[in-house]
Amino acid sequence: MPSPLQKRSLVDIALEQIHLRIDDGTWPLGQRLPPEPELAESLGISRNTVREAVRVLTFSGVLEVRQGDGTYVRACANPLDTMLVLARSSVEQALEARGIIEVEASRLAAERRSEADLAALREALEASAVHHGGVLDEYIAHDLAFHQRVVDSAHNPVLSELYRYFSQVIRAGLERTIGDPSRPQPSFELHRELVDAIARGDADAAAKANRALLI
Rank of each mutant, 00 (worst) to 15 (best):
H147D: 08
G173W: 13
V73A: 15
S3R: 13
K208H: 15
D69W: 10
E115S: 15
E36G: 13
P186F: 01
A110S: 12
G25L: 02
P34E: 06
A127V: 00
R112I: 12
I215L: 12
E104Q: 06
L43Q: 10
D117V: 01
D23V: 09
P181M: 08
A212N: 09
E52P: 02
G30W: 05
I170W: 11
V50H: 10
L10S: 07
I140T: 04
P186H: 04
D204R: 14
A124N: 13
R122W: 14
V85S: 13
P35T: 12
L159D: 08
Q93H: 13
F146W: 04
S46P: 09
I170N: 13
I170S: 15
I45E: 15
L39S: 08
P186K: 04
M1L: 02
A75H: 06
L136W: 07
P37W: 10
Q67T: 02
H132P: 08
S9E: 12
D69V: 10
V50L: 04
L159E: 03
D204E: 05
F146Y: 06
A77P: 09
V65A: 11
A209L: 11
K7N: 08
R21V: 00
S182D: 03
R164E: 05
Y72A: 08
T82M: 12
R200M: 03
T71Q: 15
A205P: 10
D196H: 09
A94V: 15
Q185H: 02
R107P: 04
D117I: 00
I101L: 13
K208Y: 15
L29S: 09
V103I: 08
A119L: 04
E175F: 05
A203W: 00
R112T: 13
V73H: 07
R107Q: 06
G133A: 12
H132F: 14
L39R: 14
G61A: 09
R107A: 05
V130K: 12
I170H: 14
R149K: 12
G99Y: 01
G201Q: 07
I198K: 15
H191L: 02
E138T: 14
A172D: 06
R122F: 11
E193C: 06
G201C: 12
I178P: 04
W27I: 06
R200Y: 05
A109R: 04
A145L: 11
G201E: 03
T49G: 09
E123V: 03
L159K: 06
A97I: 06
R8F: 03
E193H: 07
S42W: 14
L43G: 09
H131I: 00
L136E: 02
E104S: 15
A203Y: 00
P157I: 07
R66V: 01
I178N: 08
S153L: 00
K208I: 01
H155F: 00
Q6H: 10
A116L: 06
S160P: 02
F59W: 08
R8P: 14
P186Q: 01
L162D: 08
A53V: 11
F188L: 12
R211P: 08
L118V: 03
Q168A: 10
I140F: 01
A129I: 05
V158T: 07
Y72V: 14
R21W: 00
